[in-house]
């Protein structure tokens, strides 16, 4: 069920992100989904989602190489770090990964795709900053939406993931 749920979410996220990119809006939804998958369902699901997500997104955007793998791997690794190292359940604290995810999950590939040119780096950084702020505001909303469907399907939710880790530690 987790696999099917993530597969459907992946398709929806790729469609939305590709459609938004085609009209000039670059909001990285896929790093958020990868973060969620790695955080809630475990590293296998998070890292397993990296390759298909990068391939589907980059090749449908006209890129020659799936550079997004780098950013998505960082997003999955960040989820594991956040799950095992950070001790807070506050909803407001979610603004931190919300800000960082669009930056680490989207900036590296944009810099590489822009051939490391000064203007490319500048544009990518400005883009990442704007997306980071937007991400900080909307991240709790994405978590609530994904949790809503997870709960409906009887799957593990974002809050339960932390409890699971605490039990593992005990």
């Amino acid at each position: 069920m987790r696999f099917t749920f993530l597969f459907v979410c992946l398709i929806i996220a790729v469609v939305i992100q590709t459609a938004l990119r085609a009209i000039g809006i670059n909001f990285p939804l896929l790093p958020i989904l990868i973060f969620y998958a790695a955080y809630v369902y475990g590293p296998l699901f998070g890292f397993g989602l990296v390759l298909p997500a990068a391939f589907l997104l980059d090749f449908n955007g006209g890129w020659s190489h799936p550079w997004s793998i780098i950013g998505f791997l960082l997003a999955a690794a960040f989820a594991i770090f956040w799950l095992y190292r950070i001790e807070s359940d506050s909803l407001i604290f979610l603004a931190v990964p919300g800000f960082l995810l669009p930056v680490i999950g989207d900036l590296p590939q944009n810099i590489i795709a822009g051939d490391f040119s000064f203007s490319g780096i500048l544009e990518s950084c400005a883009d990442a900053l704007a997306n980071g702020i937007l991400g900080a505001v909307t991240f709790p909303f994405w978590i609530i939406v994904l949790d809503f469907f997870s709960k409906k399907l009887g799957l593990c939710t974002y809050g339960e993931a932390k409890e699971r880790v605490k039990k593992e530690k005990i």
């Binding site: 990119r21 085609a22 006209g62 890129w63």
Partner: peptide
């Protein structure tokens, strides 16, 4: 119709 386009290659390529 253009179905895919990204900011780093906005002027260079599209799908």
């Amino acid at each position: 119709e253009i179905s895919g386009r990204t900011a780093p290659f906005w002027r260079e390529r599209f799908v």
